[in-house]
C-alpha cells in the first residue's frame, strides 16, 4: 500500500488553479520533498492531503484512505507541523504535548509516557517547563514537530519546518528529522534546496501548481541536464515558466 497517492488532484480558487492535475505516489517510510517557489502549490497540496482543504477534482489517498470520504480515518493516521509553529503560547512544552496526546484520545498514563518520549527525542528536557511563547524559533519548531508526532502518525507532514530559522537551528532540526527517517513516511515542503538535498529520498518540483519533475536527486539532475539541485531546480523552473 502506498503512503500517499494523488490522482489528477486539482484545486481551483476562483480564477486561480493552485494545484493542477497532480499525480503523486509516495512509498511508506519515504522522506519525500515538495520543492517549489512561493505559490507553486506545495502548501495547498499538503492541505488537501491533511483534509484541511477539499480538492476541486481528482482524488487523494493517505494509507489507502480517501481524503474526501474517509476524513476521520485519514486524520487519525497523519500529523502536521504547519508553516507557523501553531503551539498554545501560554502552555508549557510539556502541557502542549499532553494536550495534543489527549486530543488523540490517549489515556493519562500513555499521554505522560509519549510526552516523555518526545521530550527525550527532541532534547527538550531543559525547556519542558517553559511556556511555548517564550521559546526561541528553533525550540518552537521542535515543539511543533513533536506535537505532530504525538499521535504516532503513519504520515508526517512538515510544511517548511525550517523557515526563518538561523543556520544552527536549521542544522539541529535537520538532525532531528533525519532521526525520524524510515520510522514513518515524511512529506516535507521547503524552499531550501540544501534541505531537500540533505534529507530527501525523492524530490518533486512543483511549478505553478503542476508537477515539473520527480525523482531522486540524480534523476532530477539527469532530467535537468545540470549538476546540483539548485541548478537543476532553476533549469526546470525556467523551462516551466517558459511553457
Amino acid at each position: 500500500m502506498l503512503a500517499v497517492e494523488t490522482k489528477k488532484l486539482t484545486k481551483n480558487y476562483k480564477d486561480l488553479t493552485a494545484v493542477d492535475s497532480l499525480d503523486l505516489s509516495v512509498e511508506q517510510g519515504e522522506l519525500f520533498s515538495l520543492l517549489g517557489v512561493n505559490g507553486a502549490g506545495k502548501t495547498t497540496t499538503v492541505r488537501m492531503l491533511c483534509c484541511l482543504s477539499q480538492a476541486t477534482s481528482g482524488e487523494a489517498f493517505v494509507m489507502g484512505k480517501s481524503c474526501k470520504t474517509e476524513m476521520p480515518q485519514v486524520k487519525s493516521l497523519i500529523g502536521i507541523s504547519p508553516q507557523d509553529t501553531a503551539v498554545a503560547g501560554r502552555l508549557t512544552v510539556e502541557e502542549n504535548l499532553i494536550f495534543m496526546s489527549r486530543v488523540y484520545g490517549f489515556d493519562p498514563e500513555k499521554s505522560k509516557q509519549r510526552t516523555q518520549e518526545l521530550i527525550g527525542i527532541f532534547g527538550m528536557e531543559k525547556v519542558r517547563s517553559k511556556r511555548a511563547k517564550t521559546l526561541s524559533g528553533g525550540w518552537k519548531r521542535k515543539l511543533s514537530i513533536a506535537m505532530a508526532l504525538i499521535g504516532e502518525p503513519k504520515v508526517l507532514f512538515l510544511d517548511e519546518p525550517t523557515l526563518g530559522l538561523d543556520v544552527l537551528a536549521r542544522r539541529e532540526l535537520w538532525h532531528a528529522i533525519e532521526q525520524l527517517k524510515g520510522k514513518m513516511t515524511i512529506i516535507l515542503t521547503t524552499h531550501y534546496m540544501e534541505e531537500a538535498e540533505q534529507l530527501s529520498d525523492r524530490i518533486a518540483i512543483m511549478i505553478e501548481g503542476r508537477l515539473a519533475a520527480l525523482g531522486t536527486l540524480s534523476e532530477i539532475e539527469q532530467q535537468a541536464g545540470t549538476q546540483g539541485l539548485e541548478n537543476s531546480f532553476v533549469a526546470i523552473a525556467e523551462r516551466g515558466v517558459q511553457r
Binding site: 491533511c50 483534509c51 484541511l52 476521520p72 486524520k75 487519525s76 497523519i78 502536521i80 504547519p82 508553516q83 507557523d84 509553529t85 501553531a86 503551539v87 498554545a88 495534543m100 486530543v103 488523540y104 484520545g105 506535537m147 505532530a148 499521535g151
Partner: peptide, 13 residues
C-alpha cells in the same frame, strides 16, 4: 488568526 485551530482541524477533533 494563527494556525493553532488549523492544526486541530487536522486531528480527530
Amino acid at each position: 488568526g494563527g494556525t493553532f485551530l488549523m492544526r486541530l482541524y487536522a486531528t480527530p477533533m
